[in-house]
Write a protein that binds this DNA or RNA. Structure first.
Lengths: 219, 219
DNA sequence: GCGTAACCCTACGCATGAGTAGGTATGCTC
DNA sequence: GAGCATACCTACTCATGCGTAGGGTTACGC
């Protein structure tokens, strides 16, 4: 007799699907579960159940828990960077480029809140992935710093690399923070959020690029 | 015969210390371990060992793992808010107040990198504490928003509450991001980092407060 | 129409780590 | 200097959850 309690009645309850499809379903489920529970608190059983499949299938297709998480990170990260890269036409004013980048970024977060949560809230902290994430973030910071540098040279000014890097860090951090705010306010409009970020970033950056500097008071 | 393998030789290897002292040692160890491993990956055994004490003592004094983590959060959070509050004289120009707050903040992070890591990198994500943290962050955002509002009224202008909140969010996020950068660069100077943040924040805020607004291109 | 590869399952082994039981030593009070 | 509260320990129990063994069943090529 069959060991499949559910299949006694000869009609299989579960559809057989090609690997590529199942893998995406699993990744979808994993992103959802990881985003809510966090890496450690998420269990493979729950992910499997959310994907409508049994645990060994997950292992067979995506490997161990860590590998699965990295796969999630990878997919969501790629989606995000592509969304941003696709929007950024290289030869435009810094102003315009920044605006398009921000719009794409907030658009992505608005549309993939779970993905954002995994990328930003979960991967931090858990050692094995900190590197993976830090690298992505570093690339982003570099892009922003490069943009600032470009705009700066166009105005005939020059600033140390560290200074640029730090300002870029601040801008990226501010964006991430607003993205978080956006992710927590389902009613909020990504476009409007991007405009707000642009206000903070650009009006500040414009001053900085123009040569203004704030100095601490005499003390 | 004694069950204490180590104490056979009549001289106790471990000093007996009053509860208050041991509790601080335990919290120190816990913050250290939590900051490196994250909440889930940290084990009570490792924390106990790092504190130079046995596990049951930790349970006796600080309770379960969650309670211990909350205690860490609480101590470090209090230290931080007090450091900032202590620096912020209420009746000063927004300019000056922001500067002092930032300086205190980055000073704290530079001096308590582990505490910062627990507060910022670990508490996010792990559901039980997200609330705890979000509340602290919300208070901070509110303070910044209040400051902006104050400065704004002084210039005879007015802006919607949400707008202020969002700008405040961006500023707080930028600061956190720079704090992270600082925590990862042991050689970096907190004072200088605060100055950099002030440059980004204030030159931008000054423009905003003056009524400048960036608007998306025609499209 | 038949073999074989691709899908899919139930049910377990086993390590890790939270929390506890139960007992020992030592300072402090009277 | 007896008693008691406090500080402290070793050695367990037990749940959780990762990863796998060992198999069934269906589609697809030939």
């Amino acid at each position: 007799m069959s060991r499949y309690a559910r299949k006694v009645s000869s009609t299989p309850t579960f559809k057989r699907l090609p690997r590529a499809v199942r893998e995406q379903q699993m990744l979808d489920a994993a992103v959802r579960v990881f985003s809510r529970r966090g890496f450690h608190a998420a269990s493979m059983d729950e992910i499997a159940e959310a994907a409508g499949i049994s645990k060994p299938m997950v292992y067979a297709y995506l490997g161990t828990k860590e590998e699965l998480f990295v796969a999630c990170l990878h997919r969501e990260g790629t989606r995000m960077t592509e969304a941003i890269a696709g929007a950024a036409a290289p030869d435009l004013d810094a102003d315009e480029r920044l605006w398009r980048g921000l719009r794409a970024f907030f658009g992505f977060v608005g549309a993939h809140r779970d993905g954002w949560a995994v990328l930003y809230r979960q991967a931090r902290g858990s050692q094995p992935f900190a590197g993976e994430l830090a690298a992505m973030r570093a690339r982003l910071v570099e892009v922003v710093a490069g943009m600032l540098d470009h705009a700066l040279r166009a105005r005939g000014r020059e600033v140390s690399g560290t200074d640029l890097e730090v300002v870029a860090y601040a801008l990226v951090g501010a964006s991430e923070s607003l993205a978080d705010w956006l992710a927590d306010h389902p009613g909020a409009d990504p476009e409007k959020t991007a405009t707000r970020m642009m206000n903070v970033a650009w009006l500040g950056a414009d001053q900085l690029l123009g040569g203004s500097t704030w100095r601490p008071p005499q003390q």
